[in-house]
Simulated scan of single mutants.
Amino acid sequence: MANNLTSKIQYKNYEKGEFSDEQDRSLEETLELIKSFPWDAQRGVDVQASGPGIVINGPADDYLKVSVYFNEKYTVYYLDRSGHLYEFHTSDLDIADQKVADFFHDQLSLSDFEKHFFNAGYRSHFVNKTFWYKVNKFREISRMLSLIPFLLIWVSMLMVFSINWPVWSLLFFSLLTFLLLPLFLYSAFSIFKVYRWSKNMSLWLVQGSDVIIFDNGVGSQSYLKSDICKVNMYGPPVVSRGTVLTTIMEVIFTDSNTIKFPGMVLDPVLFITKIGKQVNINYLEQKTMFRKSIRQL
């Protein structure tokens, strides 16, 4: 029997892996936490393992979660240390409490639980995620180095064409090179400049908390989402990940403090989701190739 187990709360506006009020609690304290949880107010959203509820971490690196289900019912999830997920449904919270008591006493029976056939990735619904975002240096350096083979292939094709192709084909290919090469080089330069500027930045941001922590590589400082005055977004926000690396987000707070970071740190679409739709966002330099925001870095 465990005297105390670690428990934590997940609300419906939290992200997967986001929890609060995590601490060791006795069985009685845990049952009181379950009783005081606003079940009715938290219904109407996800009824899967990432839904709102109370998560308890067992001594065998296993987890029990009491969560919401359809029709005012409850789900009790059990995740064993091997990642196998089981679930049990009930309309009586007292029955769910008994499952919690059995879990504390190491007497939980899975005979009336339904086992999930697929078990990949369920652990991420129960464990804490750090929510620190930073530049993936290996990925970005690899991305920049991958541009070199394309340039070499292009030059090699130009050399082959100059020997075996008619003059008009060579002129056409040379003109195409003259037009596209500056764009290619500028794109590579932009990626490198943004990388060099942001490689040591880190940002802590979750959907369910008002706090923002930003580290520019020299020191970190805390801010509040509720203090955001507006956001200036330089570059395209809602396109594929590969084209928003150099999109720059400038967050301006009511006290005139600002923080700036690129899509290399946090994808713009995810950033917008996390700060909330009520924030005023100015979309700038949406279709500008040679962006002033990058030149000024």
Rank of each mutant, 00 (worst) to 15 (best):
Q278Y: 09
L147W: 14
T130A: 15
F126L: 03
S124P: 00
E22D: 01
F117Q: 12
L175G: 02
R295W: 14
R139Y: 11
D21W: 03
H125F: 14
V218N: 14
S124G: 00
S111N: 15
G276M: 10
E285Q: 11
V239R: 04
F113T: 08
Y63R: 06
Q296G: 00
V55A: 09
T75Q: 12
F172Y: 11
V160G: 01
Y122D: 04
G263L: 05
H84S: 13
K73V: 00
L145C: 06
T6M: 11
R291G: 07
F253K: 04
K199A: 06
V68C: 12
H125T: 08
S109C: 08
M1D: 10
S256P: 00
K129I: 04
S293Q: 09
G51K: 09
H105V: 00
L5F: 13
L33A: 08
N71V: 04
Y234I: 05
V135M: 05
E22K: 15
D40I: 09
Y283E: 08
L158P: 04
Q42G: 04
H105S: 11
Y63L: 04
P182M: 02
V194E: 06
F19N: 01
N119K: 09
N13T: 11
F126I: 11
V194Q: 03
E15F: 02
E87F: 14
R43N: 07
T254R: 12
K137H: 03
E87D: 14
V55I: 15
L180R: 00
E114P: 00
Q42Y: 03
V279T: 14
R291A: 09
N71I: 12
I294S: 06
W165P: 00
G276V: 07
F189M: 02
A41I: 00
S142E: 02
G44S: 06
L27C: 13
G51P: 09
V135K: 07
T254W: 00
T75P: 01
Q221K: 15
H89S: 05
F192D: 00
K134C: 04
Y86M: 06
D227F: 07
T6P: 02
V68I: 15
K193C: 03
V194C: 11
T90M: 09
I95D: 13
L5K: 01
L108W: 03
D92V: 14
Y223K: 04
F178T: 08
H105R: 13
E285K: 09
P182Q: 07
A60P: 01
T30W: 04
N232A: 08
V194I: 14
K260R: 14
A2T: 11
E18Q: 15
L185S: 05
L31G: 02
F118C: 03
E18F: 07
S226P: 06
D215R: 02
I213H: 01
T258H: 02
F271H: 08
V231K: 08
P262R: 02
I191Y: 10
H116D: 04
H84Y: 13
S174H: 03
L5E: 03
K225T: 05
D97E: 15
L284G: 05
P268L: 05
A2I: 08
